[in-house]
């Protein structure tokens, strides 16, 4: 199978270029396996990866124009020639490796932790199965960046718009009955940029390798803001 990969080494290349490899694949070969094969042929080829089973979130890349995890994408199911590029909207460090500093900065900015005002009991805080169910589809986020890296609003304003990944986490805590930081979370998200750059383009939910839906979470935040306003 013909695979074309994005190459750029700032130390040696004036311009990025695409390099093509022919790789033997089976129906079980993942994109990551193919990339490892390429790296074996050319050890200078560089990409991130770790767990190989879609739980660590290291190998988010752009595969045939759509962001996804290399380790859980079967290459035989893709249209040939397969084109592999770094995630768009993030500065490129080398080959498929992008600089995700801004992405994590936005994550930190939404205060992704339980805020408690009241003292906690010496046992667990109670949560009914129904209350716990509200966190499903939210807490599973692996911070791979596929969503934010596919969001035009995030491309245009990565410094000001929190992006789908961070906003999904914001809602994860707003939706948690143990959290008591609703007011300050909503205040923090106010203004035209942090939340409201979302124009419901919905690329985020299309690409999420864990099947999560940040657009819906953003909608929930807006509704809650409205409810708190009136």
């Amino acid at each position: 199978m013909r695979i074309s990969v994005y190459r750029y080494n700032p130390e040696t290349d004036a311009e990025p270029y695409m390099e093509t490899f022919d790789i033997e694949v089976s129906s079980e070969t993942m994109v990551r396996d193919a990339l490892l094969e390429i790296k074996e042929r050319d050890p200078t080829f560089t990409f991130r990866h770790s767990c190989g089973e879609g739980v660590c979130g290291s190998d988010a890349i752009n595969i045939n124009g759509s962001n996804g995890l290399g380790c859980v994408t079967k290459i035989a199911e893709l249209k040939e020639p397969v084109e592999i590029r770094p995630m768009p909207g993030m500065p490129i460090i080398r080959d498929l490796v992008v600089d995700m500093t801004q992405f994590f900065q936005q994550y930190r900015a939404v205060k992704p932790y339980i805020i408690r005002k009241d003292p906690v009991p010496e046992v667990e805080l109670k949560q009914t199965p129904e209350e716990r169910d509200k966190l499903d589809g939210l807490y599973e986020c692996i911070l791979c960046g596929c969503c934010s890296g596919s969001c035009p609003s995030y491309w245009w304003n990565p410094d000001k718009f929190r992006g789908p990944a961070a906003l999904l986490q914001s809602w994860r805590f707003l939706a948690d009955n143990r959290d008591q930081g609703t007011e300050e979370r909503l205040d923090e998200l106010d203004g035209p940029y942090k939340l409201f750059r979302c124009h419901t383009i919905m690329n985020c939910m299309d690409v999420c390798p864990k099947g999560l839906n940040p657009t819906k979470a953003i909608g929930h935040i807006k509704q809650l803001m409205l409810k708190n306003m009136v």
Partner: peptide, 13 residues
């Protein structure tokens, strides 16, 4: 233009 309620107000408008 980062006033309180600005985001939600415009969204609502």
């Amino acid at each position: 233009m980062n006033g309180r309620g600005d985001g939600i107000r415009n969204w609502l408008i």
